[in-house]
Design a binder for these strands. Structure first.
Length: 837
DNA sequence: CACGCTCTGCCTGCG
DNA sequence: GCAGAGCGTG
């Protein structure tokens, strides 16, 4: 009978293969592979989301049907024969009538967890899952689909108290966190000029990505002064967040991991629940997210991760590509499936991308191919400067649209930095071409929205000191900095929230002058807090704006603030939308959503307009015609990358790979002879990445190569010294370039240890000399003037004076100068515009 | 306390 | 070149 069993198993697979014949072989294998750790290396445009969604649907309908060895009891030849004859049916018919009888331990939808990075991706998966189960809505909605953050918040809302958070804890966004960090710096008495908040925030964020506590950080800092300071700040910052019963975005992940580690019973409950865990964009995960994934999937071990090591472009924010590169070591039995067939681009575009990315060493290795033919060559265009470049884009779009070969929405302009958007946008604005720029200030980042949310946050969580300080004097209530300082001081001493102090303002002598206004404010919040329990959210929102006087403030300001009023109205529609879409709308729930859901519809694909955005934000999107302006060494790859290590360069190359693979049909690479960027004009040679593309794939629209590679003489300014150090090789550096190596340090040490020493001050000792058409910047080094006590000097603003004393300070010099008219002042040599007279 | 001027920094950025 | 922060003045 063995033969019959084999025939049964074989025909079963054949039937599944046919029913899923609109997938390719690798895609099918990924869908059918169910009880295994599974790594799907999904190349750009290889149908990754389709695989993810169909696999989840497969789990629910058929479980492990495909690979299961189960033989039905009493299997007989006529039954197997029937199955074999069913193979002539159409795929849809097979799926509808045959496959369900093979189902083997199907998975309940609520036992599947699918994690993504962005809300957009989560929503797409939800929508596509819903389409997979048109017959019943419940199935798709029971699947736990969400971002890392939303999944973690959901867990923390259940168990946050085990980690010392009170219910209703607040989520701080980047801006709130920055304020908290500034407060930490005040408490630690560390000057922001010596240690910029930005770099501290970055260091702390990276530490949390790696699950390092403040203590761990201090331990690792050893005797490094700067690191030790950051460790202190990290600790103080956590303390401040705790006082406000708040978490930042990184805490959300880290605290969840800690919770699962410290409370095995909680961990076990989730592990047992999740029979299947899927993670999308796995190349973007950091250490903490990897840990979380491992923990949640740890019981059943049916973990599927989907990603593309070649598209890992977020190392700078903590993502570690090692997660994907070492997945098969972490899960020895893991199956690895590569999706290399591309359904998006032409072969020329893919060949260019393949050639480029092959210059990277740290990768799994994939070669994309397509069945759709060679297509047009890649167009390479050289322009004079950023303005002619922008005009070239405009002209090309007009030309192609005029020929009716495409419509506006088919075009995308993708650039490395947002700073490039400016000149391009101007050119489009002057033309008749509709366009949209993505990025920039997000709706929820607007001041009025943040203020309104801050009121709601404070109502929801009275401990939230950050939000309290944000709005206590907005609109103006005559509660100034001094009063707030006193409140904060008392709160610290009493170990209570600032709001608790304000409620009892009359009890403190230090607050006696402002007690009345403070109590009034407390009354306002109390009233709203009570109201929040009874009225609906939209009503509460209006009450906040009216009772606080915020709306009146904007109305009184007249026309110039009318935008803000409109924005608040729009925000209110968002509230109503939330109320309609949620089964049980609560203030906490709404605030959570606003904190975790960035922008509703950032990219409206239906609008017929050229779209402009950074390459980073274009990941995952595709366009028939793509322009890549600014393909120049120094811009892309950026200067920081050129002076940094190979790992950074590989990431930059992956970014170029992402850029190229966005294009479906045509790709235009544009570069310029000179470029005005950050207020300085530079020469930039053609990007090395373009040189890594075989020339047979490229059509030059002019004599671009000759000009771009010949970098002679020098080139100056911010990116100083670069022409030589890159192309001239070591030891060939010109005196000028040596003087200008001041940037190299900052790029390698992750916000660390950049000394201001050799940094020329922008407005003082740098002078611009124009040689021919190209402005060159001359370093101050040779020009810095040294004065002695007694010298008479002239200052641009203060007039003439006499130097009283000269003190060396680091690499700089501090002069004390008695001016004839404005008295004695202390000035740094680098910054003072002094001339000897 | 509000404004305007000056100074500074500036790649990319999800939640 | 430009936005946001910080500082000094009315």
């Amino acid at each position: 009978m063995q033969n019959l069993e084999q025939r049964y198993l074989a025909i079963k697979k054949k039937l599944f293969d046919k029913a899923y014949s609109n997938l390719n072989e690798q895609q099918r294998e990924a869908v059918f592979t169910v009880n295994h750790p599974l790594l799907v290396l999904a190349g750009a445009g290889s149908g990754k989301t389709t695989v993810l969604v169909r696999r989840i649907a497969f789990l629910i309908r058929y479980g492990n049907a495909y690979f299961s060895d189960y033989i039905p009891y009493g299997l007989d030849a006529s039954y197997v024969g029937e199955l074999e004859s069913a193979l002539v049916l159409q795929p849809e018919a097979i799926e509808q009538h045959i496959l369900s009888q093979f189902t083997a331990s199907a998975c309940e939808p609520y036992r599947i967890l699918a994690i993504t990075f962005t809300n957009k991706a989560a929503n797409e998966i939800k929508e596509r899952l819903a389409k997979m189960f048109p017959e019943d809505e419940a199935t798709a909605s029971e699947i736990w689909t969400g971002t890392f953050h939303s999944v973690c918040v959901r867990i923390l809302r259940q168990h946050g108290e085990k980690m010392g958070y009170r219910p209703g804890f607040t989520i701080y966004d980047t801006d709130d966190s920055k304020k908290a960090m500034l407060e930490a710096m005040r408490r630690c008495n560390i000057d922001e000029k010596l240690l910029p908040v930005k770099s501290v925030m970055n260091a702390v964020s990276r530490a949390k990505d790696k699950l390092m506590s403040p203590d761990d950080f201090a331990l690792e800092a050893g005797q490094d002064f700067r690191q030790k300071q950051i460790a202190r700040l990290y600790e103080a910052y956590q303390q401040i967040l705790r006082e406000s019963n708040a978490m930042d975005f990184d805490d959300i992940i880290m605290q969840t991991v800690l919770l699962l580690k410290r409370h095995p019973e909680v961990c076990k409950a989730y592990q047992q629940r999740f029979r299947y865990v899927c993670v999308d964009e796995f190349q973007d995960t950091n250490v903490a997210q990897m840990q979380l994934t491992v923990l949640l999937s740890g019981f059943h071990n049916n973990l599927m991760v989907v990603g593309d090591d070649d598209q890992s472009i977020y190392r700078f924010r903590g993502a570690t590509i090692e997660n994907i590169l070492t997945f098969d070591k972490a899960y020895p039995g893991a199956k690895v499936i590569k999706l290399e067939q591309n359904y998006r681009s032409t072969q020329n575009i893919l060949d260019a991308a393949n050639a480029l990315i092959s210059h990277n060493t740290g990768r799994k290795g994939k070669t994309l191919w397509t069945a759709s033919g060679k297509g047009a060559k890649i167009q390479l265009k050289l322009c004079d400067d950023q303005n002619t470049e922008a005009r070239y884009l405009v002209d090309t779009v007009s030309r192609i649209v005029a020929k009716k070969e495409a419509t506006y929405r088919d075009f995308a302009v993708l650039y490395r930095t947002n700073a490039q958007a400016n000149s391009i946008e101007k050119a489009f604005a002057r033309s008749a071409i509709p366009y949209r720029v993505l990025g920039g200030t997000r709706f929820t980042d607007r001041k009025e929205i943040r203020d309104a949310v801050a009121y709601l946050q404070l109502i929801n969580n009275h401990d939230d000191n950050g939000r309290l300080t944000r709005i206590i004097n907005e609109p103006k209530r005559k509660i100034g900095a001094k009063t707030l300082e006193a409140v904060a001081q008392i709160a610290l001493e009493q170990n209570c929230s600032q709001f608790a102090v304000i409620e009892r303002a009359d009890a403190y002598v230090a607050l006696k002058n402002s007690a009345a206004t403070l109590l009034q404010f407390a009354e306002l919040i109390h009233g709203l807090t009570v109201a929040a329990k009874t009225v609906t959210l939209d009503v509460l929102f209006d009450m906040v704006l009216d009772r606080s006087g915020y709306r009146k403030m904007l109305i009184d300001a007249g026309a110039e603030e009318s935008d803000r009023l409109e924005n608040l109205d729009e925000f209110k529609s968002g509230i109503i939308e939330y109320m309609n879409g949620s089964e049980e709308p609560t203030l906490t729930g709404f605030l959570e959503e606003t904190a975790l859901v960035a922008d509703v519809d950032r990219y409206d694909e239906s609008a017929d307009a050229v779209v402009m955005m950074t390459i980073h934000s274009a990941k995952g999107l595709e366009f028939p015609i793509v322009f890549l302006p600014g393909m120049e060494d120094g811009l892309f790859p950026g200067m920081q990358t050129i002076t940094a290590g190979e790992a950074d360069m590989e990431e930059e190359r992956r970014l170029a790979y992402v850029a190229i693979t966005r294009a479906k049909k045509e790709l235009y690479i544009v570069h310029t002879r000179t470029r005005l960027l950050y207020g300085q004009t530079n020469y930039h040679p053609l990007s090395r990445f373009v040189n890594e593309i075989p020339s047979a794939l490229v059509e030059k629209l002019d004599d671009s190569e000759a000009d771009s590679i010949r970098v002679t003489g020098y080139v100056g300014s911010v990116y100083g010294g670069f022409g030589r150090s890159v192309y001239g090789g070591r030891g060939a550096e010109s005196p000028i370039s040596q003087k200008k190596t001041y940037y190299s340090e900052s790029a390698t040490t992750q916000g660390g240890g950049r000394t201001p020493i050799a940094r020329p001050a922008r407005h003082s000792s740098t002078e611009t000399i124009t040689v021919g058409k190209t402005p060159m910047t001359k370093s101050m080094g040779e020009k810095r003037m040294l004065f002695a006590a007694g010298d008479r000097v002239r200052h641009l603003n203060f007039g003439d004076g006499e130097i009283l004393s000269v003190k060396p300070m680091g690499a700089d010099t501090l002069y004390e100068i008695m001016f004839d008219t404005v008295g004695t002042k202390k000035l740094m040599a680098t910054y003072a515009k002094l001339k000897k007279i």
